[in-house]
Every structure is written in structure tokens, then in C-alpha cells.
Amino acid sequence: MSYGYNSRSYFSRGDSDVRDFASALLAALKAKRKSSAEKQRCLVFICHSLGGIVFKQLVVRGHEQDSFYGPLLKKIRGVIFLGTPHKGSDLAYWDSIGTQIVRAATLGLTTNTKLSKDLKVDSEMLKRISDSFACRGATFKIRSFYETEFMTGLNCCVVDRDSARLGWCNELDIASPSNHSNICKFTSRYDPRYETLVSELLDIIDETEDDSGLARES
């Protein structure tokens, strides 16, 4: 499944924040898992850029509302982060370079002032989410892909290696020969970057099935 939202309306509201996105995603996911079979299905998330922050907040928010989302959270086995700014970004353009670059860096999302400030290095919001996620994500299988190429017009990576990694023992960090925009875009199923991502996804699934005693279907 893929999850999207109206980026124009969300990111143009002054009071919009990551908590709103996480809350909406939790409710949408719960609504899709109504049958007994779906409720037993394990979950692996693939998140690009701000989507990784939303995922971490989703886990935190879910634990805060454990009576509603506890069973769902127990089915999360792993996550793949693609250029997620775990420690923010120190690039000045988040505030000053303009909406054209910001849209390119966030796959077309229009960002507001509050969210731009939240994405500063070691911002209070990112610290709060990371601290809360730390004690809840220790059992996940984590893969963190970081970009190694500059975007057109910039002389640096949008989310550098240090920011794109959690630095946890249950995390494997992987360099991706791509920029912030195309780190989640692939030319075909034979694209080496795609093959690497799928391989890591299958590793998470294999580890999940080994842990649960399930046999993998051919």
C-alpha cells in the first residue's frame, strides 16, 4: 500500500505539524486492516524524507493510544528510511532559498515556516520525536539509505550521511548513488538501486518470518 495526502493543504496551514500526519496515517491504516487475516499481517514501512519523521511519530503516537493501536504496532517488523533527516538539516535554503528548491527537495511538497524551523539541526521537535522513538523502535529491523549526490543548483546533499542515520545497532546504513529527489525513484526493476532496496526488504521479511516461525511462500 502507499499513503499520500494533500500536500498543498497540509503544508499551507499554519498549525500543521508532523503529529497531524501521523495521526491521519494511523487511522487510515487501521481502517484498512479490518479482517482477521489483515490484522495478523506483518508491516514493513518504506519512507522517503519527511515520511520517515511521520513514521517515527506514528510509532510514538500509537503507543500513546495503545488501547486503539497496540495490536497494529505489534505487527510492525521493520522500516526502510530513504533520505530521512533524523537530525534535521543545516541547509540555509529551508528558510531562505525559496519554494522552488524546497519543493524539489521534498518531492513537490509546499512547506510552511513552522515545519522549516522544525527541520533545523537538533531542533526541539526532532529531538522529542527521536527520544520518544528510541525506546520503541529498538526491536525493528532498520535500513537507512543516504544520498551521495547533489541536487541541481546545490553544492551539497540535502540530507547528509550523518543526518540520515540513527546510529543504532539494529540499523544498517547504505549509501545510495542518488540525490534527495530520486533516492526513491527508479528507472526500472533492473535498476541496481532498486535491486538493492528490494534485497534489503526481503532480508527484513526473511528475518521477520524466522522470528515468527512462518515459512516463506515461493
Rank of each mutant, 00 (worst) to 15 (best):
K34Y: 02
F186W: 10
S89W: 12
C156A: 13
V198A: 13
F21Y: 04
D191R: 04
I205F: 15
R13C: 11
V44L: 10
F55Y: 13
E147R: 10
A22F: 14
R193T: 09
D66N: 05
I97M: 09
V121E: 05
F186D: 03
A92I: 08
N112R: 00
V158C: 01
P85Q: 00
A92S: 13
K30T: 15
T99V: 00
I183T: 03
K87S: 08
L91M: 11
Y93E: 01
I97Q: 08
N182S: 11
K117E: 10
T110Q: 11
V159D: 08
H63P: 06
N170M: 04
E149A: 12
S132L: 06
A37H: 12
I205K: 14
F150L: 02
P177F: 01
T99E: 04
T106H: 08
R189W: 15
T208S: 05
T106P: 04
E124H: 10
R143Q: 12
T152Y: 13
K87E: 08
K56I: 04
D191A: 01
V102D: 06
N155Q: 09
L214Y: 15
G108A: 02
K87H: 15
A175Q: 05
S163K: 03
R103E: 10
S12D: 10
A215D: 12
K32P: 06
A134W: 09
V158T: 02
R136F: 15
P192L: 01
Q65P: 00
K56C: 07
I174H: 12
E124Q: 08
I76Y: 07
T110W: 12
A28L: 04
S9P: 09
L107H: 05
A27H: 13
K75R: 13
E195G: 05
V121W: 04
K127I: 09
F145T: 02
Y194K: 03
A92T: 11
L82N: 03
A92K: 05
E171N: 09
I46K: 01
P71Q: 05
D17A: 10
W94F: 05
I129S: 07
C47W: 06
Y5H: 07
E64A: 08
G78L: 03
K34V: 01
L115E: 09
N155E: 11
I183C: 00
T84D: 06
L154V: 06
A134H: 14
L126M: 07
S16G: 07
D206W: 14
C47P: 03
G83F: 14
T139D: 12
F81C: 01
K34T: 01
L154C: 02
D17S: 13
D211T: 15
P71F: 12
K56L: 15
L107R: 07
G78S: 05
D20I: 00
S178Q: 04
A134T: 12
C135K: 10
P177N: 00
L197T: 05
S176M: 14
A22I: 10
S130D: 14
A164F: 09
